[in-house]
Design a protein around this nucleic acid. Structure first.
Lengths: 240, 240
DNA sequence: CGACTGATTGACTGCCCTCAAATAGGGTGG
DNA sequence: CCACCCTATTTGAGGGCAGTCAATCAGTCG
């Protein structure tokens, strides 16, 4: 359902010198003219970030708009009692801090890097200027926010109507798409039980038990910090 | 926290003839010049809708953008097994169908009128034209979507981390703000147990039991299809 | 005065969380 | 290479929140 590479040739491609790796594309840049992309990239700063580094703090006032170029991060939302809930992966090409385009609003979520990553950063003011000048860019931002809204609504449905088993299956399928590495044996996911449990919002123990069951059924294989999906299709049937 | 009437005098006011009632204001029109509001209203069609009428269907392609002028409606999101979940009230001034500004996207939610209501409707094409011509209007749409995103995230937290009791308390407090009528005895809510249960995503029986308990504690009084909140403040303490 | 919808109450059940305790992997330093 | 530690994981027992089911009661409207 993702209209990620919906376009033709080099739509959304960004080759503004060494700022982005070859083949990098973002929904934010889709349909922009090369000259526009160059201008947008020229206004950005590149930053390297390390694992566990917090890139934006929910509730603090918005300082900048960011775009993940390489690596991996995730959205979290704080819950009462100091915990925070996993919302979604952030993979290369995903923007965050889109609240920066809305004057005087706080960050809605916390973003934490999960791997060594590089990001592009625009300060609030120049982001606003750029998005005012380039209508298509503003339209893309609107579309991205719409996508997030849509995904969040789906997550809400999943979290409220599905059983623990279904939510875990869902978490695995989503992770397979976003952080999985295809191998000869299947799709390999670099996930601990704890991470999976937090994604699916189940306890560590429920996650462990469910994975064991699927392992017995031959759907997947586990090892410490890694899950090998042998038959992802058989998971799909678990959750609708 | 709501920046609803953040403005000065008649910001967001709309007196474009008989299209909107006096005192009507919408976040969508905030900061617009009267001439702009007039132009926007001129492009709209007014429709009357009756209770239980479905104004947009989740998943169907977007035809129009709407704004509730009088009455009451609600957002719902479909769930597997044919049920649909309550997401949020729509009260006068709230826009829906904002996906119309995004070419080729389906409605994310179903909207159903709950009372005799009147709405303003723009077809997709003219809405797009208007929002392109008036940057402030586009900015407002972005802000509204951002608000929905924020509220949806809060709802997600509530639905996943809170107990049934807390969710019911939350539903009551929200309803008090949006559909409550203040009286001498307290705030009166025109809600059946069933509606409340669907808002809080609890079973009918859990809702009934919880309300009975609060009635015994003197926090509220129940009658058929109506709830009278005597001490709303004592509910707040229930949910954090 | 029926008939229908809304609300109540109790008994039972089940999913999944909590807690406790044991086991296994993987790296490190001796 | 082995002892050790720290973290990840497993497995079982127990319990609680809230849902389902069934039956009854109450209000309202024609």
């Amino acid at each position: 359902m993702k209209s990620e590479r919906a376009g033709g040739d080099r739509r959304g491609g960004a080759r503004g010198g060494q700022l982005t790796p070859p083949g990098f594309r973002s929904k934010l840049f889709e349909g922009l003219k090369p000259s526009e992309i160059t201008a947008v990239l020229a206004a950005a700063q590149r930053r390297k970030v390390s694992p566990d580094q917090v890139l934006q703090h929910e509730g603090t006032t918005v300082r900048r708009l960011s775009l993940l170029v390489t690596g991996l991060a995730a959205f979290y939302k704080g819950a009462p009692e100091g915990t925070h809930l996993f919302l979604r992966w952030i993979t290369p090409g995903d923007a965050f801090g889109l609240a920066a385009l809305r004057p005087g609003s706080p960050y809605l979520t916390t973003v934490k890097a999960l791997q060594e990553s590089s990001i592009l950063v625009w300060d609030r003011v120049s982001a606003y200027a750029l998005f005012s000048q380039i209508p298509r860019l503003a339209g893309n931002a609107y579309a991205v926010v719409g996508d997030y809204l849509s995904e969040l609504a789906d997550l809400l449905i999943a979290r409220t109507t599905q059983t623990a088993q279904q939510r875990i299956a869902r978490a695995l399928v989503q992770s397979a798409r976003q952080v999985g590495r295809a191998g000869t044996e299947g799709i390999e996911l670099p996930l601990t039980n704890e991470q999976l449990a937090e994604m699916a919002y189940v306890s560590l123990f429920t996650a462990s038990r469910q994975l064991s069951e699927w392992q017995n059924q031959g759907i997947l294989a586990k090892s410490r910090g890694k899950i090998l999906l042998r038959a992802p299709k058989r998971l799909d049937s678990q959750y609708f």
